[in-house]
Design a protein around this nucleic acid. Structure first.
Lengths: 334, 334
DNA sequence: GTATAGAATGTAACCGCTTACATTCACTTC
DNA sequence: GAAGTGAATGTAAGCGGTTACATTCTATAC
């Protein structure tokens, strides 16, 4: 691989001049620029990004941490982040935190040790305090699905409470008076917010919340199935179910089916997140849309703006959920 | 951030010695090693990976190119690759090729310009010739879902023909005599192989292949729906459908449903790939398992072995598909 | 014609590490 | 006791760029 030195030789200029045309900065006369570019072409020269990084103290890489690399939900986000950053000539290093505090910290360590210029994190397990000190450290961070007062401009979140409020309202308006709730892990802030929205909708409709109609899961399919089993076993009748996310809703549906109940005739179900395969289900699952793709894109833009000094980027920080009505809910005959 | 120089000062040794304990190579006396380690700890020293890369001419990063970053299928692969490589202290740079020749080439260019030590590619659009010259270039590549004679040890593939052969046989054995085929884009080698397996199973069962029962799609949902529409419109009756992948099968199912037909009573359907949500469908989709996760892992290991000199890794190159029987197929009453 | 300013280009130090080679030093060996 | 040996450590030259500062050159003003 040719180096900048060889290019300078061939073009008959100094290293500095070649570097200047490379960074098309400063003033280089059109004539020398042309000479240098010709030399680069002739040698098939491509800058060594590692050397550039070392000299400029900028790696042009941003680290992205998500709970899981697979999974319907995060793939979308990864995709939009990569798309946006790649277009700006930056590259992305991904890592998975597996919703475990130690693993999340280890991954952050790992990414930081990789000289990332910035980190985009979708984490739950680490504390606000930890994130606070991290945010005050040398490498800037952006947060998806979480708010940190220290860096309001680089936090991107959805109004989770509003989302399940809408979902619950939809069920109530269809005549459901007994509505169960399948909660996410309540130590996670978003799971709590979603639960609050559910309760608020109930209260506003003059319905009381019944502890026996609550089950807590971990956002995964199996826990949804198990949650539904415990709800049914409790014996309190209900005609609607609001699930804190789509995956648990799927688990719940499996359980319901195994008992010979049919959806939505015997039970109306509504999920949250609008992961892509909810459309494919039969009946298609009603859910609440979570615009994770644009949120990822916005986070990417915020680092483009704050870290790389790019200007004129359109950025939004707060997002509104939107109800997606499909066949898994039906009117309840009073 | 502390540098190796400060560590050497504090420990009272030379730069080289610090570097030696860092790479725990060579012989360093236990005493000096301890001194150095203490100094590193005291300074909170962490090596600058960029500088290491520049000096050692090794970036410790491997580039991974997939058609799409989102999507049920590739997420699994990304996940296992990251897992395996991360455990070895390497990091992964992902990029998407979008099954487009120019974009795939651009992504490969991009990854190579990032000084990746190796590339793991899941590509279709670029030619064998292009891959051949790439493989002879300076950066080693590994291929998933494709074979290149130049690098047999770093190609990882599934016997696609066998997979659809099995799927088709399964339908035939259930009494289906009229079986339609929803092909992938036939310019892709795997789509062709799958189609061949279908034809072979038919021939072996003494059934003739009817051109009117063939539709070609692009592996995406919408094309499956459209393919099914054209099959139905053609008017030739059939009781079974083999789809070249699961996503198209989903599209086909939508179309079928809209016409009031029920699966599997009116039509038995079988897909290919066993993407995770096939389980969630109702009825659950029969399919052919594609062990993309272990294939990704194996590709990662092959670069660990060939590029980073790691030994004792268990590696397999060829994989066998396996039929997954679920509720979307039923016996056809003769 | 000389002084002077500003644009274009060059010089060289540095980024933080690796590594070939040189040096030191404590033991053996005869 | 001199010479030889090998392990531990040090020296210094890169790796391929960036960039502050110095230098050269040209055009303008007087």
């Amino acid at each position: 691989m040719a180096t900048i030195y060889e290019v300078s030789e061939l073009a008959g200029v100094s290293l500095a001049t070649v570097s200047r045309v490379l960074n098309n900065s400063d003033k280089v006369s059109p004539a020398t620029r042309a000479k240098v570019e010709a030399a680069m072409r002739e040698l098939g020269y491509r800058p060594n990004t590692i050397a550039q990084s070392l000299a400029s103290n900028r790696s042009n890489s941003v680290g992205v941490l998500v709970p899981e690399l697979d999974g319907a939900f995060f793939g979308i986000m990864l995709s939009s982040i990569e798309d946006e950053l790649r277009a700006a000539g930056k590259h992305v290093i991904f890592s998975a935190g597996h919703s475990d505090e130690e693993k999340e910290k280890a991954s952050i360590e790992f990414l930081a040790s990789r000289q990332c210029d910035a980190l985009i994190l979708h984490v739950f397990a680490v504390s606000d305090e930890y994130l606070g000190t991290l945010a005050n450290g040398p490498v800037p961070i952006a947060l998806i699905g979480r708010n940190l007062p220290e860096i309001p401009g680089r936090c991107f979140s959805l109004d989770n409470e509003e989302g399940s409020y809408q979902a619950t309202r939809a069920l109530v308006e269809l005549g459901h008076r007994k509505v169960a709730y399948l909660a996410g892990p309540l130590w996670k802030s978003d799971a709590r917010a979603r639960f609050v929205g559910f309760q608020r909708a109930l209260a506003e409709s003059g319905l009381s919340f019944d502890q026996a109609l609550l089950a807590e899961g971990n956002y995964q399919e199996a826990s949804g199935k198990q949650g539904m089993r415990s709800l049914l076993r409790a014996g309190k009748p209900f005609t609607g179910l609001v699930s804190a996310n789509d995956e648990m809703a799927i688990g719940a549906i499996e359980e319901v089916r195994e008992r010979g109940m049919v959806i939505p005739d015997d039970l109306s179900i509504i999920g949250f997140d609008n992961v892509f395969f909810t459309r494919f289900m039969n009946p298609a699952l009603s859910t609440v849309n979570y615009p994770i793709d644009v949120m990822g894109r916005m986070a990417a833009r915020s680092v483009l703006r704050d870290v790389y000094g790019q200007e004129g980027l359109e950025i939004r920080n707060r997002f509104e959920p939107a109800l997606v009505r499909r066949a898994s809910v039906a009117r309840h005959a009073q």
